[in-house]
Design a protein around this nucleic acid. Sequence first.
DNA 1: CTGTGTGCAAACTCTTTGCATAAGT
DNA 2: ACTTATGCAAAGAGTTTGCACACAG
Lengths: 155, 155
Amino acid sequence: MQQEAILQTDPCRPATAGAKLLDGAGLRSTRPRRAIADILFGRSYYHFTADEIFAVAAETGQRLSMATIYNTLNEFAAHGLIRRLATAGGPAQFDIGTGDHHHFHVEADNRVIDIEPEEIAFARLPEPPQGYRIANIDVMIRLEPVGPQSTGEIA
Amino acid sequence: MQQEAILQTDPCRPATAGAKLLDGAGLRSTRPRRAIADILFGRSYYHFTADEIFAVAAETGQRLSMATIYNTLNEFAAHGLIRRLATAGGPAQFDIGTGDHHHFHVEADNRVIDIEPEEIAFARLPEPPQGYRIANIDVMIRLEPVGPQSTGEIA
DNA sequence: CTGTGTGCAAACTCTTTGCATAAGT
DNA sequence: ACTTATGCAAAGAGTTTGCACACAG
């Protein structure tokens, strides 16, 4: 949560990293979109909630409405720039990259930690049902703390 | 969506499959809980939304309130009988079994298809971060129809 | 200048909670 | 009889939508 937030998303700054992505996706390069794209792709983070986008943007002086953030994230997702992670209960998480993507998930904190693709390899995979092909594979490794066995599943 | 719904969940019927599970989990055996447990474990389905529970229960004459269904499902999850699947956007899906569980996911329909555990094997897995251990591993294989290659994911 | 994106606020869906009643042991 | 669960309805969180204004090309 201590991102420096020194993004170059000022409207006068013409060619941010995000601007290129917008261009490549055929999306009009607007200030909010550039801000969001820069946050998504200019950082070392790989997953965000809409709320986090809002907070990071706010730190750079970009005041975006949640509606715009959600609209933009959905638009990005529709154009294949990002993807929605499914997290139970909490707010939706968005994730950059459309290839195989693996995560640790700490349920207690609803926190997601990225796993590098090469860290996971399969010895065996099922065939997809007829009429479908595999778009990608997400591995979610759920973690629990070792020390205090807080998850009182012993009843 | 054409489950026969001929569950034996009448209050006079003492020992349903669900009743045993409730007993094993130390949960008081009430009629709604038995109905839900029977639906969850007495069928060939492995994942449900709260709404589907409501519908299936209704077919057997069990009229449960959504509040009770959610409460019960959460309770079951807390006791390790079921687990919440994370599906983006749609309603929460619950899934029986607490071991490793793998799924195909058809995004278009928000449909989840179970994969038998033995269908997937790993050649390589990452180590969990310090202080955590792996609780379980979920593999989500996202499917897309073969005909229209919509998601041009060449990478 | 024209069309699209933005932002506010309200609507909407899904889920949880409070409290009186009913059911279980 | 006492404790705990249920059900209704209302609250709550997260996300989407409608419409007037502003911005991009």
